[in-house]
Amino acid sequence: MESVQLVRPDRVREEAYQEYIKEWEASEEEIIPHASMPKGKKYNEQVEAWKKEEQGIGIPEGWVSGSLFFLVNSEEKVLGAVHIRHKLTEPLFERGGHIGYGIRPSERKKGYAKEILKLSLEEARKLGIEEVLVTCDDDNPASYKTIEANGGFRDPQDAEENGILVRRYWIR
């Protein structure tokens, strides 16, 4: 696997971001994490909105502040994204957790999911989050194997959403 790093949105070129979004849209899959989705704003306005969210400014009621990072390679191609929530609400405690991440469809099965979660855990620790909750659907073995490979231990109290079992993992 090539060298990769997490960068904040202001370090991602607009063209690289647009290419990332176009691939997700062409796949007809839901963009994960949702925080990386375009919000109908110009790119520079969206970058500013992400910065404000990280500072807790202008967050909708019931939401929490969070940090968005993009996983990029040496050529600045956006391979994936991660959203780290600074604290948990009751719904996030049940499903969602502290970290939500996704790898663009063409870059999967290359080890990037494991790497983005590993790097995200380092960022979470910088934010003072020592015990991290990560969740995934039971029918997504790639995701739960990634979480387990990063030291996740399964909470005996799984959740359920729309009839789907949601696995809950803690990583210290």
Results as ranks from 00 to 15, higher is better:
residue 5 Q to E: 14
residue 9 P to E: 07
residue 11 R to Q: 15
residue 11 R to V: 05
residue 15 E to C: 01
residue 20 Y to W: 08
residue 20 Y to T: 05
residue 24 W to K: 02
residue 27 S to A: 14
residue 28 E to D: 13
residue 30 E to Q: 13
residue 31 I to R: 06
residue 34 H to V: 14
residue 37 M to V: 04
residue 38 P to D: 09
residue 41 K to Q: 14
residue 41 K to A: 05
residue 43 Y to E: 01
residue 43 Y to G: 01
residue 45 E to D: 15
residue 56 G to Y: 03
residue 56 G to N: 05
residue 58 G to N: 10
residue 58 G to F: 02
residue 58 G to K: 05
residue 60 P to H: 07
residue 60 P to V: 02
residue 65 S to Q: 13
residue 67 S to A: 15
residue 69 F to K: 11
residue 75 E to S: 07
residue 75 E to P: 03
residue 84 I to H: 09
residue 84 I to N: 00
residue 87 K to H: 11
residue 88 L to R: 02
residue 88 L to C: 04
residue 92 L to V: 02
residue 94 E to A: 12
residue 94 E to W: 13
residue 94 E to I: 04
residue 97 G to Q: 07
residue 101 Y to R: 05
residue 104 R to K: 11
residue 104 R to A: 15
residue 106 S to E: 06
residue 108 R to M: 03
residue 111 G to R: 12
residue 112 Y to N: 06
residue 118 K to V: 00
residue 119 L to E: 10
residue 130 E to A: 03
residue 131 E to N: 15
residue 132 V to R: 05
residue 136 C to F: 08
residue 139 D to R: 13
residue 144 Y to F: 15
residue 146 T to A: 09
residue 147 I to T: 01
residue 148 E to P: 00
residue 154 R to M: 14
residue 156 P to H: 07
residue 158 D to F: 14
residue 160 E to C: 13
residue 162 N to E: 15
residue 163 G to V: 08
residue 165 L to R: 15
residue 167 R to N: 03
residue 168 R to E: 02
residue 170 W to R: 05
residue 172 R to D: 13
